[in-house]
């Protein structure tokens, strides 16, 4: 009557189900290399740990956060990141939207234009930061200076934009937009192509003009890709580092410093692990805040549907 018990070997196989086994390598590595380091950053941010210091590390409460926010360079970095996002996100989104709308029309050579505008996306930022230093080269021979002189009939004197207190950050914004716009354009183009033609037909029946169609059909339908790409661009604006480290080193006088640049400087040049950890946590909270706003916006829309 009773079934024979399963052979011992089979029982071992049953004890090791496929699910956890297949997920194990990735999950373990994520815990070890992402979750654990971040937990460490949070813990270290409450200490005065310095690399190579003979003094014992002590718990200092929220002192490192206070130090960070009292530090002029770090405050400037926070302001620069916010300013960077406030300028780059709307400009890049408008430009990408314009290009996506233009390249969504059918005409000969459209594919070539798409290729061209997407091309900078495959360029490493380090390379772009190097090449654009030539474009921004000081003196009358720099590309930008020559261009400005030509369009102003010589009225604009040659500038040294990357060493100019007011122009250095906008110069970095420009090259970042140049690289980022292709990504945003591609996502928006995919969004445009997903809009059902029937919506436009219905709008045409209602005698809606092109402009009215844009505002009442296209843009509402593009809402999610727009929210997504603006989120990504905002987060990228907070992460800005490569261009700063290569083209300006944060200068002149902290005019282009960023949160990540200050963080790296604090740990690498000043060996202050505790303070740099506090800066990392602040950086993470900025990214988290933007992500939560985006989630709320997407959820809101789902509820409307």
């Amino acid at each position: 009557m009773t079934e024979p018990p399963p052979a011992p070997r089979l029982r071992i196989l049953h004890a090791l189900p496929a699910g956890p086994l297949m997920a194990l390598p990735a999950v373990l590595a994520l815990l070890l290399f992402v979750a654990l380091p971040f937990a460490t950053a949070v813990a270290l941010s409450f200490t005065d740990l310095r690399m190579g210091s003979p003094l014992a590390t002590e718990f200092v409460g929220a002192q490192q956060y206070q130090r960070a926010f009292e530090d002029d360079s770090f405050r400037r970095a926070l302001a620069n990141n916010l300013w960077f996002a406030a300028v780059v996100v709307p400009l890049q989104t408008l430009l990408a939207l314009g290009l996506a709308l233009a390249l969504n029309r059918s005409f000969r050579g459209r594919a070539a234009f798409r290729t061209l505008f997407f091309l900078p996306v495959v360029f490493p930022m380090a390379l772009i930061a190097v090449v654009w230093q030539l474009i921004y080269a000081p003196g009358p021979n720099g590309i930008l200076n020559a261009l400005l002189a030509t369009v102003s009939f010589g009225a604009i004197e040659p500038l040294d934009v990357l060493r100019h207190p007011q122009l250095a950050l906008p110069a970095l914004m420009l090259l970042s937009i140049w690289q980022g716009v292709g990504f945003q354009m591609v996502v928006l183009l995919a969004g445009l192509q997903a809009i059902p033609a029937s919506l436009y037909e219905a709008a045409a029946v209602d005698r809606a003009g092109k402009v009215s169609q844009l505002f009442h059909v296209t843009l509402p339908q593009l809402r999610n890709p727009l929210v997504f790409t603006m989120l990504v661009t905002t987060i990228l604006s907070f992460r800005v580092y490569d261009q700063v480290a290569i083209a300006t080193r944060g200068g002149p006088l902290d005019a282009t410093t960023t949160v990540m640049f200050e963080t790296v400087r604090t740990v690498f040049d000043r060996q202050q692990v505790g303070l740099a950890s506090a800066m990392s946590v602040v950086f993470f909270l900025m990214v988290l805040a933007v992500t939560l706003v985006q989630r709320a916006l997407v959820r809101q829309e789902r509820e409307i549907d």
Partner: peptide, 13 residues
């Protein structure tokens, strides 16, 4: 949500 920049410091340490 966690960008790798947020863990660069402890990892570097």
């Amino acid at each position: 949500i966690l960008p790798y920049e947020a863990i660069a410091v402890p990892l570097f340490y």
